[in-house]
Simulated assay, not measured.
Amino acid sequence: MSLKNTATRYGSVARALHWSMALLIITLIAMGFWMGTLSEISEIIYYVNLHKSLGIIALFLGILRIVWRFVSPPPPLPADQPAHEKLAAHTAHLALYLMFIVQPAVGIVHSWATGYPIVFFNISPLPALMAPDKGLAEILGATHFYVGWALVFVIAAHAAAALKHHFIDKDDVLLRMLPHRAPQNGRDE
């Protein structure tokens, strides 16, 4: 099993980053909705700080994922895939990578602008790099909300496209990102 991507399959590093980020981002999105239902101030503080802590991890994993993409380029899309689908795939991936950085960065700066500290895993407060700014906090709060919804939309489109490749096109696009695949021709790439 290769650490790096091959011409036909994602390597173990890319797959681990993909699936860990998928789980983390889905958790963060679900937490974002769920936290809106909380009423106890102690629960709100605890879970908002947990959300922020996981967001910081998502930011670092997003940066690592982008760097890894340059170190180990992905396998090419199927040669017979229509040009408009290839453009859509590249656009969706670019949007995802952009949101992997923008969404947590906006959340972090929003915390600073509100004046509420980021207490990493409710243990260690991180320094604020700016003074509170109510007007900026409102803008960043709205931005975090709308980028979150955009992320939901792009993730849904990404998942739908992967399922289309598997069940309709019957190609290998989804299989090459799955954590494990049966060896082909007696070997696993």
Rank of each mutant, 00 (worst) to 15 (best):
S2W: 14
K4L: 15
K4H: 15
N5Q: 04
N5V: 09
A7S: 15
R9L: 10
G11E: 07
H18T: 03
M21G: 14
I25H: 11
I25Y: 10
I29E: 04
M31G: 10
W34M: 12
E40D: 15
S42G: 06
I45L: 12
N49R: 09
L50K: 02
K52Y: 00
I56V: 15
A58G: 08
L59D: 00
F60T: 09
L61M: 13
I63E: 03
L64P: 02
R65L: 01
I66D: 07
I66E: 06
W68Q: 02
F70P: 01
V71E: 10
V71L: 11
S72M: 08
S72G: 00
S72K: 01
P76T: 10
Q81S: 11
P82G: 02
H84Q: 06
F100Y: 04
V102G: 03
I108A: 09
I108M: 10
G115V: 03
G115Y: 05
Y116E: 05
V119R: 05
F120V: 08
N122A: 04
L126K: 06
P127Q: 02
L129R: 09
L140W: 00
Y146E: 10
G148H: 05
G148F: 04
A150P: 03
V152G: 00
V154M: 05
I155G: 01
H158S: 04
H158M: 09
A159S: 12
A160W: 07
A161K: 01
A161M: 04
A162T: 13
I168C: 03
D169G: 00
D172V: 08
D172T: 03
L175T: 13
L175G: 15
R176A: 05
R181G: 14
D188L: 14
